[in-house]
Simulated assay, not measured.
Amino acid sequence: MIIAANLKTNLTRKQTSEYVDELEDFLNKNKISQEILVFPAPSSLNTHSGKVTIGTQNAYAAANGAFTGEIGQDHLDEFCVKTILIGHSERRHVLGETQEELVKKFNYYKEQGFKIVYCIGEPLEVREAGNETMMKYISAQYEGIDTDYKNLIIAYEPVWAIGTGLTPTLQEIETIHKELKKKSSAPLLYGGSVKITNANDVLALKSVDGILVGSAALNVKNFCSMCEYAQNIENKKIKENI
């Protein structure tokens, strides 16, 4: 499974370093073999070697240039970062990134061989309009994206559930994940108010390949527990198949 933490605009570089060190120590002591991704704030990026993979929450589709307020590939290369989050709902709905811009970014970092966690999801009004409308809305977010890219991870995050404490039912998550898996064979994560109290149940769903955790990941001990949940589920599956 893939367990990812999006730290958003939180934690200084020093705090992030302490966070990653504590997480790394936990993973090693508890023999966690799951894929663990952490996306710090851009100013908190640093070189890291270990079980934790450090990714960037955003970057411009260029090595460098006159793009005020952005970071480019040169900055990521300095810290050996080769993983990027693209299309997060806050980038789409708060900062106004268009599908055209996201495709340009996707294609640039695909050419550089980056692991891409590509986010999709719908706002509440679209979900309430019915399944057909919802799937049409989500399908549009796949336009221009190479769903066969070997380093692709897709994260489904219902926009209305992010940071609200609201989540779809487990059955709703399973149902939409089954539909989305028809569009790509890439690992499919669930994101949207994932927290310590529901992470284990979400991870246990057959069509869920991992989770993308936001604010609940800021507590490193809780995030460590989520990594352990995933390991326990995988261990149980292996034992049952022996």
Rank of each mutant, 00 (worst) to 15 (best):
E172P: 10
K178A: 15
D146K: 02
C119Q: 09
T169F: 06
R127A: 06
D209T: 04
K206W: 11
N131W: 11
S207D: 12
C119W: 05
S225F: 02
S193G: 07
N222V: 02
T169E: 10
C224A: 08
S215A: 06
L189S: 05
P158D: 12
G121P: 09
N200K: 14
K195M: 08
K178R: 15
L124G: 06
A155S: 04
Y108Q: 04
V126K: 11
G113E: 11
S139N: 15
I162H: 05
I154Q: 04
G210E: 10
I116E: 00
A204W: 00
L218A: 06
T164E: 09
Y109T: 06
T175C: 05
T175L: 02
I153W: 02
A199L: 08
K115I: 10
A129K: 05
C227K: 08
D209Y: 00
I173L: 07
Y137C: 10
M134A: 08
A161T: 14
E125N: 01
S185Q: 09
N219A: 04
A155H: 06
L152N: 00
A161K: 07
K183N: 03
Y190A: 03
M135G: 02
E179V: 07
G214T: 06
H177V: 08
L180R: 10
K182Q: 15
T169I: 07
T164A: 01
K178Y: 03
G113Y: 07
Q141N: 03
L188S: 14
P168I: 00
L218G: 01
G121F: 12
C227E: 07
K206P: 08
I145Q: 01
M135T: 14
L203N: 05
H177T: 09
